[in-house]
Every structure is written in structure tokens, then in C-alpha cells.
């Protein structure tokens, strides 16, 4: 059985279910539970659900300490960039502690942060900064693209014994989708094949999954059959599904809303080049944001970001420049 709800509601549903299931799960952070009417506060009380001051370092650091003490905090960071204020806690404490203790401790926590509010939020609130964290061993990085995944990945994140950066895309907030009822877990490290095809593999993350599917739809009318893969989690990454697809299609287009240099896209491209080179019939093509801070004004913002047209153009390019697939 399933029900149709917005992406944001699916996230909340997962947190709510996990809090019901496990009384060690906490939910605290900025701008939540400020009134008695707050559903989390009503359901779980002010011990487990709390608004914090705008003190990222303390919020994340306390999550680490509470996790080491056996709790499973979910920290509401509000915006991904706010993690940068407390970079030390995210990068140099949470994921290091278990390792440096020789496995004697664990740090199960979820840093929940919205990203990519590319709707005029200008330079400091719009970044797709998840690749800053994919290079930090010990952190897991999750990028749900559908309401069902938003629920299932959050539940898995809360149950995971590691610190998990859970990045939800702001532009997907109100996107409705079918979400399974009750307990629902989406395993980490299992990509979803969103559309099957034989001519080209498109790997897209987060908000770009929808753009890639739309591009694939348009390409189908030209006789081009694109396979669209959503990795769902960047760490761990399901490289096998991508390599298997590339083996079939021989062509790869990567779509990532992040800036290119040091991005998840670049990392996947490198892995495919290393492990799937013999399958490739054309160079890998990356469709990413251009390397600049996101500007405020709309036309400039659009110019920087990947979109359907750029994805289609890249597909044409890897297919040899012809708008129609070679027979």
C-alpha cells in the first residue's frame, strides 16, 4: 500500500516513524518545534525534539556527543551551506571519531540539510556542495530524488551507525510522489534505474534526475534510447550498476548540479574511465554547473545550471553529433 505525499512530508514521515520505533532518535536544530503545536514536539516531547540557537558548531558537536553516548540524533541544519560554518565538526570530528578509536565507538547521526535553492537565493544559499563531503572517509552522502526515496533513505540514514549527510533538494520540496506506507527502507549503495535504454547511459543525481528523464523522453522521439540511472547515494556509490549499463550502451553522460571541479560527476567519470574504458565507444561527457558562484539574477542563474537542453546536446555529442542514432 502507498500514499501520495510531497517529498518534504515523506522526509518528515520517516523521521516520525523512526522516532516512534526507537526512542533513542532525537530531532533538533534550527527553526523547528518553536510552538507547542509542532507535530514532532507533540508526539515526542521537548526532550527529544528541540529548537536550538543558530549555533551550528554546537548543534553538530552535540549530535556527535549524544551519538557517542548512544543516541541517534537527526540535526536540522536547514541549509547545506550552514554546515560550512561548522566544518570542523562535520569533517574532522563526526567521521573521524570511530576510526581513531579503533572501532570502539560509533557516531550514528544524520545531518539533514536542504541544498540547491536555485531560485534567486544568490551566492550563499544555492550550492550543491555535497561533493565537499564525498571525499571525507567515514561520512555517507545521500541525495534523494523522489518522495519515496526521501522517506526510505532517511529511515536508512537514521538506522545507519555512521554520520550521514542527508541532502534534500529545495526545488523538490513540494513534488508529490507515491510513498510506501509504514516502515520503508531504501538501502544505501543501490542505484535506481529510472528508465531503461540501449543507446546511452545518463547518470543523474538529485534534482537532475527529473531533468534527465525529461531529456530522455524528448530523445526517444528522435529514436534515441537513453538509460537513466539515479545513484541515490554518492557514498557509498553503486558503481556496478553504472558499469553494467555502460557495458550495454557504450556511452556515458553524467549530470550533476554541482560545479564540476572535484565533483561527484568527476569522480564517477574517473571511475568509469578506469574500470569501464574498454566498454566506451565515445568520451564520457559531463553536464554540470559551470564553475562559478550562483548569481542572483535569473538569466545568469539559468546559464550556469544544467538543464534538459544541455543534457540532450551532450547525448547527441556522445552519439557522434547526429541527432539520430546510428543504425
Amino acid at each position: 500500500m502507498s500514499h501520495e505525499i510531497p517529498y518534504i512530508a515523506a522526509i518528515n514521515e520517516a523521521i516520525q516513524l523512526e522516532m516512534e520505533r526507537d526512542e533513542d532518535v532525537l530531532y533538533f536544530g534550527q527553526n523547528i518545534a518553536t510552538t507547542e503545536d509542532d507535530p514532532f514536539l507533540k508526539a515526542f516531547g521537548s526532550d527529544r525534539v528541540r529548537v536550538t540557537p543558530i549555533s551550528e558548531t554546537a548543534e553538530i558537536g552535540m549530535a556527535v556527543g549524544a551519538a557517542l553516548a548512544g543516541l541517534r540524533p537527526v540535526v536540522e541544519l536547514y541549509m547545506a551551506e550552514f554546515m560550512l560554518v561548522a566544518m570542523n565538526q562535520v569533517v574532522n570530528e563526526a567521521p573521524r571519531f570511530r576510526y581513531m578509536s579503533g572501532g570502539r565507538v560509533k557516531v550514528p547521526l544524520v545531518l539533514k540539510a536542504g541544498y540547491g535553492f536555485t531560485a534567486g537565493w544568490a551566492g550563499q544559499h544555492t550550492g550543491s556542495i555535497y561533493s565537499m563531503f564525498t571525499g571525507v572517509p567515514g561520512l555517507k552522502v545521500v541525495l534523494p530524488s523522489t518522495a519515496a526515496d526521501a522517506k526510505g533513505l532517511m529511515a536508512t540514514a537514521i538506522r545507519d551507525d555512521n554520520p550521514v549527510c542527508y541532502f534534500h533538494h529545495y526545488l523538490l520540496t513540494l513534488e508529490h510522489g507515491d510513498v510506501p506506507d509504514g516502515e520503508y527502507l531504501v538501502p544505501f549503495g543501490q542505484a535506481a534505474v529510472r528508465r531503461e535504454g540501449g543507446d546511452v547511459t545518463i547518470v543523474a543525481t538529485g534534482f537532475m534526475v527529473g531533468k534527465a528523464l525529461a531529456a530522455a523522453e524528448a530523445l526517444a522521439s528522435e529514436g534515441i534510447s537513453a538509460e537513466v540511472i539515479d545513484p541515490r547515494t554518492l557514498v557509498p556509490l553503486d558503481l556496478d550498476t553504472i558499469l553494467t549499463s555502460v557495458e550495454k550502451t557504450g556511452r556515458l553522460v553524467l549530470v550533476d548540479q554541482a560545479t564540476r571541479y572535484g565533483s561527484a560527476s568527476a569522480a564517477i567519470a574517473a571511475d568509469v574511465a578506469e574500470h569501464g574504458f574498454s566498454s566506451l565507444k565515445a568520451p564520457i561527457k559531463q553536464v554540470t554547473a559551470l564553475d562559478a558562484t550562483i548569481p542572483y539574477s535569473e538569466p545568469m542563474e539559468a546559464f550556469l545550471l544544467p538543464d534538459e537542453a544541455k543534457i540532450s546536446a551532450a547525448v547527441h555529442q556522445v552519439l557522434g553529433g547526429s541527432p539520430v542514432a546510428t543504425a
Binding site: T57, E59, I60, G61, V64, A67, L68, A69, Q89, E93
Partner: peptide, 13 residues
């Protein structure tokens, strides 16, 4: 870096 972690432990306590 230990200060907020200790506060978290105290919260757990």
C-alpha cells in the same frame, strides 16, 4: 572540539 560533544553526552545523561 570536545565541548559540544560533552554537552551532548550531558544531554544524554
Amino acid at each position: 572540539g570536545n565541548l559540544p560533544m560533552a554537552a551532548g553526552d550531558a544531554l544524554a545523561a
